[in-house]
Design a protein around this nucleic acid. Structure first.
Lengths: 146, 146
DNA sequence: GCTTGACCTGAAGTTAGCTTGAGGTTGCAT
DNA sequence: ATGCAACCTCAAGCTAACTTCAGGTCAAGC
């Protein structure tokens, strides 16, 4: 029951739908941990299937791996998390979703006003207020609704 | 009135909040056009301020430049678009927003179920159904809610 | 005991969306 | 006529999140 709870990377990949290379990358980033066999092969906890699945959901919401790492930090590493652990972290995710829905709803509202007035016109239009964007970015891909 | 409608890239940058380098990049990508002066400097139409502002809004919604290019293709290039042109394209954007809100709402619903049952458990949990993800990706950054 | 598929590491490549830098030219104001 | 900011091009760099490749090792079944 203890030995059998350790699974090789390929199994973890199959169970989560992730590529083996992606899991190795996540381990490097510190999102999962593994122990090694005598022959230097990784063995993961069965509960890491959930852990990585959580990563996938959070990614769908547009969170970066760094943020996801933060969220996961509240879970115990190396021990199977309890149901309560998962409930707590899931609620945090729900908060994120709510926030994003709000942002989108606001954007939609603004856009409606702009369609109404036919303007899409700078300076007056709430939608692309230069100030909202000031000091925006840097290189790299652009992300969604900040 | 015709001459004066042509603005240099720096002005366009200031009016949109974009970096000069970004505008040059967009031109290369075909999102805007410009004419050149005798001395090979770019001159843009005043209406390109709107055009680029539209790009910014669409980006906030998570659209890629390729998709934005498609949307913009319905606008006349090289001539100032009419109010009706803009209304049409704005409505398309509204559709996108609606779609995204729907997706998020569905995800939230699924997450609620999962919090309810405390599961976050594969195979049974609607949230991370492997099938939904199959044939996912390739390299590069991951994007939001497909 | 041998084969074959799963696994290992490290370095380099990929995509998106830009920025930065080097080295040179333009154009408006004085 | 001269200065200086704004402009030009082209190549290379950057971040995120991975994949791909080369060259080797492990382990489970026959």
């Amino acid at each position: 029951m203890n030995r059998n709870d350790l699974i090789p990377i390929g199994t973890l990949a199959r169970r989560t739908g992730l590529a083996v290379s992606a899991i190795r990358y996540y381990e490097e980033r510190g999102l999962v941990r593994s122990v090694r066999t005598g022959g230097n092969q990784r063995r993961f906890l069965r509960s890491d299937i959930r852990r990585l699945s959580f990563v996938l959901i959070a990614q769908k919401l547009g969170l970066g791996l760094a943020e996801i790492e933060q969220a996961l930090a509240t879970l115990p590493q190396g021990r199977t998390p309890t149901v309560l652990d998962w409930q707590k972290i899931s609620r945090a995710l729900r908060g994120e979703i709510d926030h994003r829905i709000q942002l989108l709803t606001r954007t939609r509202h603004k856009l409606d006003e702009c369609i109404g007035c036919g303007c899409l016109s700078l300076d007056r239009c709430a939608l692309y207020n230069k100030e909202d964007r000031a000091g925006a970015a840097g290189p790299g891909p652009r992300f969604v609704l900040d």
